[in-house]
Simulated scan of single mutants.
Amino acid sequence: MIVTPDYCVTMARYNAWQNRQLRRIVEAMPDDAVRAERGAFFGSILATLNHILWGDRLWMAMFTGSEKPDVGIPGSVELTPSVPEWATQRFRVDGQLLIWAETLSALDLTGSLTWYSGAMGQEVTRPVSVCVMHMFNHQTHHRGQVHAMLTAAGQKAPATDLVFMPADGPWP
């Protein structure tokens, strides 16, 4: 399976674009609306956004040695206490992710990664390329849930198609 540095840059840009659109929407929503139980896997819009942020921080820690979140999956939904705090941390992580992607070489995307998976309760070894694809897929999967919750909440959900991402940015 071949994952290239260019793929990573494209997906990091896509991630930042999507999160910037979501940030504008959720910052304008009432707090109770972003915290409302909506029947999604992680419950609310904010809880799901927190879980995505948690996942990105966890994967970036494994790829770069940066600091891991100090909570597991159950605590991921409370990673930040508010939309403004989520937005601040999201902006930082999106920038870190883009810098990481822009500095990758093809060699960085080879080999295997071994870690202890709390979700599986065991040590796991997978190709780095699969882990990178998973990180980007995880973001997209859960943002789809947020999209559905926003629509159900009466919000105009943002464009999500990769082919419609502006060619000249956006940059975090």
Score class of each variant (00 low, 15 high):
residue 144 G to E: 09
residue 168 D to V: 14
residue 30 P to I: 07
residue 65 G to D: 02
residue 53 L to K: 00
residue 73 I to H: 07
residue 44 S to L: 05
residue 49 L to E: 04
residue 40 A to I: 12
residue 41 F to M: 05
residue 123 E to I: 11
residue 17 W to S: 00
residue 30 P to K: 00
residue 9 V to M: 00
residue 74 P to A: 06
residue 139 Q to H: 13
residue 46 L to Y: 04
residue 56 D to K: 12
residue 131 C to K: 06
residue 15 N to H: 11
residue 49 L to T: 02
residue 45 I to W: 00
residue 74 P to H: 06
residue 17 W to K: 01
residue 161 D to K: 00
residue 68 K to Q: 14
residue 78 E to D: 15
residue 84 P to N: 09
residue 122 Q to V: 08
residue 165 M to T: 02
residue 62 M to P: 01
residue 140 T to Y: 06
residue 161 D to I: 01
residue 47 A to V: 09
residue 48 T to H: 06
residue 21 Q to N: 15
residue 142 H to A: 14
residue 36 A to D: 10
residue 17 W to R: 03
residue 48 T to Q: 08
residue 45 I to R: 00
residue 155 Q to D: 05
residue 162 L to H: 07
residue 113 L to P: 05
residue 78 E to F: 11
residue 155 Q to S: 09
residue 55 G to T: 11
residue 97 L to G: 02
residue 59 W to D: 01
residue 60 M to C: 02
residue 145 Q to H: 14
residue 76 S to M: 08
residue 2 I to W: 04
residue 90 R to Y: 08
residue 109 L to M: 07
residue 166 P to T: 02
residue 137 N to P: 03
residue 89 Q to D: 10
residue 93 V to Q: 08
residue 160 T to L: 11
residue 62 M to N: 14
residue 67 E to D: 15
residue 99 I to C: 05
residue 127 P to K: 04
residue 121 G to C: 11
residue 69 P to A: 12
residue 10 T to E: 14
residue 107 L to C: 06
residue 51 H to Y: 10
residue 166 P to Q: 05
residue 18 Q to L: 13
residue 11 M to L: 15
residue 63 F to E: 06
residue 25 I to T: 11
residue 116 Y to V: 02
residue 126 R to F: 11
residue 32 D to K: 06
residue 62 M to Y: 15
residue 102 E to L: 05
residue 7 Y to W: 12
residue 164 F to A: 12
residue 102 E to G: 06
residue 76 S to F: 05
residue 103 T to L: 08
residue 42 F to W: 05
residue 70 D to W: 07
residue 69 P to G: 08
residue 149 M to G: 13
residue 21 Q to M: 15
residue 147 H to C: 08
residue 49 L to Y: 06
residue 123 E to D: 11
residue 9 V to E: 00
residue 8 C to R: 00
residue 42 F to V: 03
residue 95 G to M: 04
residue 87 A to P: 08
residue 52 I to T: 04
residue 14 Y to G: 00
residue 68 K to R: 15
residue 130 V to D: 14
residue 111 G to S: 11
residue 72 G to I: 04
residue 95 G to L: 03
residue 4 T to R: 06
residue 166 P to W: 00
residue 101 A to C: 11
residue 64 T to R: 10
residue 96 Q to P: 03
residue 134 H to M: 07
